Structures are given as structure tokens and as C-alpha cells.
Simulated assay, not measured.
Amino acid sequence: MAQIRGTAGYHLGSQPSFGGPGRPDATNDPSPLDAIREQTSKIEDWLDTLSHPVKPYIPAIGRFLIVVTFLEDALRIITQWSDQLTYLHDYRHSTSLICF
């Protein structure tokens, strides 16, 4: 699978980059940023191969977590109903018409 890195395929190679050959003080020594980019590229490739078997299931996992979040919130509301009524009455000064 081809990946786009660097200039993201916008053909910006003609523009001088920071620390590139366009600068008058540029040397042939490799930049520390180039070494970091090389290492992060290796890590990114490793993570991509590691996560490849899980990728088809990510949408289902996300939907499941959203549903579980709503269920947990509903359970919390039910179990803490009296605390919520106390809060509404004491701090928000609501009437008892809302608090059934």
C-alpha cells in the first residue's frame, strides 16, 4: 500500500525547505529532523502492520462504545435520581413540578 509522506504529493519539491539545499549555510550532514522522520516513519509502518487485522472492526467497536456510553449514562441517572432531585431543589431552586 503506497503512503504519501513529506509534501503529500503536491509537488512542492521546487520550493526550498527549511534547512534544505536552498539555504546558503546548508551542509551535507544529515539533519536531526531527518533522523527523527526516518524513525517515526518506521514506527508508523510498524503500527500500520500491527493494526491491520483490527481495522475492519473499528467502526463496529466505535458504535458499540457509543451505545454502552448511553446505557451507562442512563443507569447513572436512574441510580442517582434522588441526588439529582436534591441538586435541582437546593442549588437550582426549581419547583417540585419538575421533580416527579
Results as ranks from 00 to 15, higher is better:
T86P: 01
V68I: 03
L97H: 15
S14Y: 14
D29N: 04
S94V: 07
P59R: 00
T27G: 01
L75N: 04
G62F: 02
K42F: 08
P53F: 09
V67F: 12
L50N: 09
I77P: 04
G20V: 06
D34A: 10
E38P: 00
D48Q: 11
T69G: 03
S51M: 15
E44H: 07
T40V: 10
Q80A: 10
R37E: 07
P53A: 08
R37G: 07
S51G: 14
L97Y: 11
T49Y: 09
I36P: 04
D25W: 06
L97C: 12
F64H: 11
T86R: 15
L88W: 05
G22M: 01
L97W: 12
S94W: 15
P32M: 03
R76N: 10
R37T: 08
T86I: 01
T86Y: 14
P16H: 03
G13R: 06
I36Q: 06
T49Q: 13
D29G: 04
L50Q: 09
S17P: 02
I77M: 11
H93E: 04
W46N: 12
V67T: 11
Q84F: 15
L33Q: 00
P53R: 07
S51I: 05
Y91D: 10
A35I: 02
L33R: 00
S17D: 07
T95W: 05
K42M: 08
Q15S: 13
T49N: 15
P30Y: 02
R76S: 05
L65R: 13
G13F: 11
Q80E: 14
I98P: 10
P53T: 03
F70Q: 05
R23H: 08
L85W: 09
G13M: 06
L85E: 13
T86G: 03
G19K: 01
S17E: 10
I61A: 14
T27A: 00
H52N: 14
I36V: 04
H93Q: 05
R23N: 09
L71E: 12
G19S: 02
E72K: 04
H52C: 11
N28E: 15
T86M: 07
D48E: 13
G62V: 02
P30R: 00
S41T: 10
V68E: 11
L71G: 04
Q15E: 08
G19D: 05
G20L: 02
A60E: 09
I36D: 06
